[in-house]
Design a protein around this nucleic acid. Sequence first.
DNA 1: TATTAAATTAGAATTATTCTAATTTAGATA
DNA 2: TATCTAAATTAGAATAATTCTAATTTAATA
Lengths: 143, 143
Amino acid sequence: MKELIAKYREKGFKLTPQRLAILKFLNGNTSHPTAEDIYSNIKKIYPTVSFATVYNTLQTLKDKNEILEITIDPQKKHYDPNIKPHHHIICIECNTIGDIFEDYSEALRLPDYIAMEFKPVGSHVDFYGLCIKCQKKERRKRQ
Amino acid sequence: MKELIAKYREKGFKLTPQRLAILKFLNGNTSHPTAEDIYSNIKKIYPTVSFATVYNTLQTLKDKNEILEITIDPQKKHYDPNIKPHHHIICIECNTIGDIFEDYSEALRLPDYIAMEFKPVGSHVDFYGLCIKCQKKERRKRQ
DNA sequence: TATTAAATTAGAATTATTCTAATTTAGATA
DNA sequence: TATCTAAATTAGAATAATTCTAATTTAATA
Ligand SMILES: [Mn+2]
Ligand SMILES: [Mn+2]
Ligand SMILES: [Zn+2]
Ligand SMILES: [Zn+2]
């Protein structure tokens, strides 16, 4: 907590209680929350917090490279405080997102022809699957 | 054109003029259009066409595995009539999407620990980059 | 303590997408 | 060919995610 405050103060963040609550919620969070998830969590502590604050804070954090915006879910954006390069797997039933810590960069060579069209700057692998919960539900349904 | 009609009639599509216009627009299209792109193109020929028709047709095509929905652009969905497995690169400036025809499946092995959480069913690589147009704009700006 | 740039807020606006319910029509059938 | 009907189309409303606005508050600084 102390370190969190120190870290963000160093980076020139103005540390309001709402922001701190958001930072605290995100810190070490591996659940890939949506803006709504963050909002409803913060609202428990600061009932008057607004969506604008959540979105503004997320934008600031994106700008300062403190979080990643994840686009694997077609319904909505998810946010990830883990900015170390990694990949994701999403459950095609319930949209739960899991982390994949593997370095595929060596294998993900682009074909030569693409250099005429794009200068690559990064990559990310979306895996699709069924989470255990949804596997169990499927099995139940089948019987 | 004849083949298009034959193909979709076989699959049990009811072939309305609006649908045919959509199918014709999508056929061989490598631009990864959005629903809006499709709508405004079809509107030129059928001025009374509605967004509902575009979305309904896209849904039907998805259900019958004739198109892919692409989630690489955080702003909106794009559609791809090329259903052969391939990957995409998106321009981080203008959102132009290009195709990457490379088979990375061999390299994209999931770590063992993930089997406890997910049963994988597929994967897709999102590449990020700058398209040539945007590279040129950047250069102009720098000078 | 006073100052002020930045953050917060409620609520409106925007944008993408989905839904609804009335109308039309493609394709099957007689 | 005329009739039938399930499926498709439509306008427009509804919903949901996100962004914007403009008034108010506040953290950090001097
Ligand atoms: Mn992650
Ligand atoms: Mn493609
Ligand atoms: Zn699941
Ligand atoms: Zn571009």
